[in-house]
Simulated scan of single mutants.
Amino acid sequence: MNNDRNFLANVVSEMKKVSWPTGKEVVNYTSIVVFTVIFFLFFFYAIDIGITYLIDAM
């Protein structure tokens, strides 16, 4: 049981050392991720349509 308390105390200690992002940074990072995902969605969709067109043309 002592090891469990020691572990939890160490977890709390380490979590206090974490550098958490601000709300503005979270919104910025989330926007970048969403934009990147949407960009690659359209990019790979266009490639898929192009390959499908080439295969159907044969």
Rank of each mutant, 00 (worst) to 15 (best):
N6A: 01
F40Q: 04
M58N: 10
V11F: 14
W20H: 07
D56Y: 12
Y53K: 14
I55V: 12
S19V: 00
I32Y: 13
A9D: 15
A9C: 13
F40G: 04
Y45G: 08
F44A: 04
V26T: 09
V33R: 00
A46Y: 00
A9W: 08
I55W: 04
V37G: 06
I32E: 13
I38F: 06
L41D: 09
N10V: 11
V37C: 12
V18N: 10
Y45R: 07
N28S: 15
P21A: 10
S31G: 10
T36A: 10
V18T: 08
G23N: 13
D48S: 13
F43S: 05
S31L: 09
F42D: 01
L41N: 10
T30I: 14
L54K: 11
V12L: 06
S13E: 05
M58V: 15
A46N: 01
Y29M: 11
D56T: 15
T36Q: 02
D48E: 13
S13C: 06
G50D: 09
F7C: 03
K17V: 01
A46D: 04
E14N: 09
V27H: 09
S13H: 05
G50K: 00
Y29I: 13
N3D: 02
M15S: 04
V18A: 13
L54V: 08
N10W: 11
F44Y: 12
V11Q: 06
F35V: 11
V33F: 02
D56R: 12
S13R: 09
R5T: 10
L54R: 09
M1Q: 11
T22A: 02
F7Q: 00
G23T: 06
V33K: 00
S31W: 10
V33Y: 01
